[in-house]
Structure formats: structure tokens, C-alpha cells
Simulated assay, not measured.
Amino acid sequence: MKKISLIHKLEISKKNFLEISKSITQPDIISNSKKYKILLEKYKKLKKIVSSYEEYNKKLVYLKEINFILENDLDIEMKEFAKIEKYNILENLSSIEKKLYQLVFFSKEEHVMEEDYRKEAIVEIRSGTGGDEACLFVEDILRMYTMYFKKLGWKYKIIYAQKGGIKGYKEIILEVNGEKGVYGNLKFESGVHRVQRVPKTESQGRVHTSAITVAVFPKVKDIEVNINLSDIKKDTFRSSGSGGQHVNKTESAVRLTHIPSQITVECQEERSQHKNFEKAMIILRSRIYQNEKEKRLAKISIKRKSLVSTGDRSVKIRTYNYPKNRVTDHRIHKSIYNLIGFMNGDIQEMINLLKFFEKK
């Protein structure tokens, strides 16, 4: 019964694929960039299904030929060969079937998670408890990430930065671009990062505990999140960041508020109000997308480690203990006794372990 249902779904997918294949070549579709992009995405997804389905059907035809040989051929050697081939074909068919079930019956939310893995990312780092020490740790974590990006050949841009009282940052937001699944690696960094060390301002050598928060969102395109401009309240103000005399003369900084969700973002890194608006929209779009995704995931049950993949920013995920040269991830109870290396961007070992535990 399951196989009949699968074949039925596959035939529908094949029919839709043929229809879309014709549609995307039509001049009126090509001229409508938004519609064309949406159809092209559907075309790519259906092509994977149809290609696997065609391969499946070829294997079935070959299986019939092998069965005919087994039933009718008198040559013993040929029959022995056919037996081996039949075993291999049945293995292949089973593998393709599993792949097709996943492609056809995989829930929309799980597809979204899989696609998100390959996306680029928005990374937000904010100081929490600990005053100036927390601001300094934001800067340290920023350095850790940028060194990690360099190892993987990723590029990053600072979208927003708010300096700390003495040094460091109260908040910094990055756009991270590259291959090899940027968001799929960085998503595990969302949460509270706690540091235990002796602050430079501490005269008696006492260890203090401070905390910062990291939030990682998949960077999304405008076609993935439909935002009505009428739902956005735009405010402008004078930048408090770098920029020389310019910051005191023009209101180039931009604050956007998405009225339905009450999500607010600011950007003041650029000298142009227009460029700040564009950057703020990138952050806003990603936050809205993440907000909607979390709502969907709350409604479904997926086999996953709850704390490993929720990205909850209120959860304490990691402690960096300087006196003991130790970094501990509390979600998987893993400690690495090479804090210096870790802070120099050697974080892939921990990320790989988090990926492993998420899939268990």
C-alpha cells in the first residue's frame, strides 16, 4: 500500500515537473523575475524527484530482464550471473525507494531545515551580564568566529556594531557568506556563552563570570519572506558609530520595526541611509524567517536533540574557563582542554560533535 501511494505521488510530481518545464520557457514568466524564481526553485526540487524516479523505473525494467533469464535461460553460468545481478538491483531499488520516500513524504518543515543548512548566515553577538568584561568577551568571540571563517574561506561583513563603554562591543551583527553550509555549521552557536576568567580590571586576581548571547539566523532572499512595506515603520537617526564629522551632520542610521511581529533592527555602519536600509532589511528578513520557522517547528515532532538544534538564546550552551584552559559545551557534556586553540578559531571539532548528536 505504501508503494502504491509512493508511485501515485511520483506520477503527480512528474506531471507537475513537465508543466513547470514548459512554463519557465514562456516569455511572460521569464519577464516576471519574482514568479520565474519561484517556479525555478520548484523545477529544481521536482527535477531531483523525477530523475530518481526515472532511474528507479530503469532498474525495474532491468529486473524484469534478469527475472526472465532466471526463469528461461538454460545456461548455468548465465543464471549464476543473473542471481548476483538480481541481488545488486534489489539493493539499488531499495536505496532509491528510501530516497524517493524522503523526497516525496519528507515534511515541508524538514525540507526547510535541510535547505537552511546550506544557507549563508546572520550572526548577532550581544553582551549580557558582566558589564565591561562582557563587552570584551563579545570582541573575543567575534575574533574566534572571524578566525574560524578564515579557515573555511568564508567572507563576512559587519552590518551593525555598538561599542562598549571602555573596549569591546555591546552588540555586533555580521553577515557571513561562503560555501560548505555556513548556517548549517553556525546554527549550533545560538545561545548563552559564559566566560570564567580574571578581568583585566580585577586587582585581587578573582575569577569573575560573565555572559554574552549569540543568535544565528539563516540569511534569506526576498522571495522566501513576503514583507509588505506598509507593515514596516522606518525611523532615522544620527549614527553613533565611526564616520568622522559625517555622523553628526546627517541622519544616516536606520531603525526598522516590523509592526505585525514587533521585531526591530537597526543599522548605522554605512554613510548612506539607503545602504543602511538595505542592510537592516537583510537582518529583518532573516529574523522574521527564523521566527516563523520556530513557530512551525513547535508544531511538529522531529527526532532531534532539543537543546542542540533549537537555537534558544536563553539556554546556557557553553562555558569558557580560562584558569583551567577548558571549554565545555553543556548540551553534549563535552570539554576540550585547549581553550587557546578554540579561541583562535579551532571550533570545528565541537561543531562536528554537535552535528553528530543532533542526528542521533
Rank of each mutant, 00 (worst) to 15 (best):
I4R: 14
L10F: 07
L10S: 03
E11R: 13
N16C: 01
N16Q: 15
F17C: 02
E19K: 15
S21H: 03
Q26F: 09
D28N: 13
K37Y: 06
L39T: 02
E41R: 13
L46E: 07
K47S: 13
I49C: 09
E55N: 15
N57R: 12
L60S: 03
L63N: 06
K64A: 12
K64R: 08
E65P: 01
E65G: 05
I66H: 07
F68I: 11
I69Q: 00
E71M: 10
E77V: 06
M78I: 13
F81D: 14
E85I: 01
Y87G: 03
E91R: 14
N92Q: 11
I96M: 00
I96T: 07
E97W: 04
K98I: 10
K98A: 09
Y101I: 02
Y101N: 12
L103Q: 12
E109G: 09
V112D: 15
D116V: 06
D116M: 06
I125F: 02
S127N: 05
G128A: 07
G128I: 00
G128K: 03
T129L: 09
G131A: 04
D132H: 08
E133A: 03
E133D: 11
C135M: 09
F137W: 01
F137V: 08
D140Q: 12
L142M: 13
L142T: 13
R143I: 11
M144I: 10
T146Q: 04
M147A: 15
F149R: 00
K151N: 09
G153I: 04
K157Y: 14
K157G: 09
Q162T: 11
I166S: 13
K167A: 15
K167S: 15
Y169T: 05
E171L: 06
I173L: 11
I173P: 04
E175C: 08
K180P: 00
G184I: 05
N185H: 10
S190T: 13
S190L: 00
S190P: 01
G191Q: 01
V192F: 05
V198R: 01
S203D: 02
S203P: 07
Q204P: 00
R206G: 02
A211I: 00
V214P: 07
A215G: 01
V216E: 04
V220A: 08
D222Q: 14
K234L: 14
S240M: 04
S240T: 14
V247W: 02
N248H: 02
A253C: 09
T257E: 01
H258K: 11
Q262K: 14
Q262V: 04
T264H: 03
E266K: 15
E266D: 10
C267W: 05
Q268G: 05
S272L: 01
I282E: 09
R285L: 08
S286M: 01
R287P: 06
N291K: 11
S301R: 14
I302K: 08
I302W: 05
L307G: 11
S309M: 03
S314C: 00
I317D: 00
R318A: 05
Y322R: 11
N325Q: 09
R331T: 06
I336Y: 04
I336G: 03
Y337D: 11
Y337L: 13
N338K: 15
F342N: 03
I347D: 02
Q348K: 14
M350D: 02
I351F: 04
F356Q: 15
F356H: 14
